[in-house]
């Protein structure tokens, strides 16, 4: 059960700042599939879509975001994949 520890344990319980979805916070921001530069913030270096738990988008905006990214990929504004040259 409880073990005596020499170094004092800081009890840090899930210190997670809950941030709000940036598209909810700022209504001036628009999700547009033609705006590749903005959508790029929601891609990893390899071109994958950043998950909601990291991007902090709400469900609604994440849905709009993934749709926009997929459309942008069709139009070659965003990559489907970025292959690393070795």
């Amino acid at each position: 059960m409880a073990f005596a520890t020499t170094r004092p344990r800081r009890k840090k319980r899930f210190f997670r700042r809950r941030r709000v979805c940036r598209f909810c916070a700022d209504s001036n921001l628009k999700i547009d599939y033609k705006d590749g530069k903005t959508l790029r913030y929601f891609l990893t270096e390899r071109g994958k879509i950043i998950p909601r738990r990291i991007s902090d988008n709400c469900a609604k905006h994440q849905r709009q975001m993934t749709l926009a990214i997929k459309r942008a990929r069709q139009m070659a504004l965003l990559p489907y994949t970025i292959t690393q040259s070795i």
Binding site: A2, F3, T5, R9, R10, K11, K12, R13, F14, F15, R16, R17, I54
Partner: peptide
């Protein structure tokens, strides 16, 4: 951005 995921619980007792 990614840093706060590191701060998970470190209580073992």
């Amino acid at each position: 951005e990614d840093e706060d995921d590191v701060e998970l619980e470190d209580e073992e007792d």
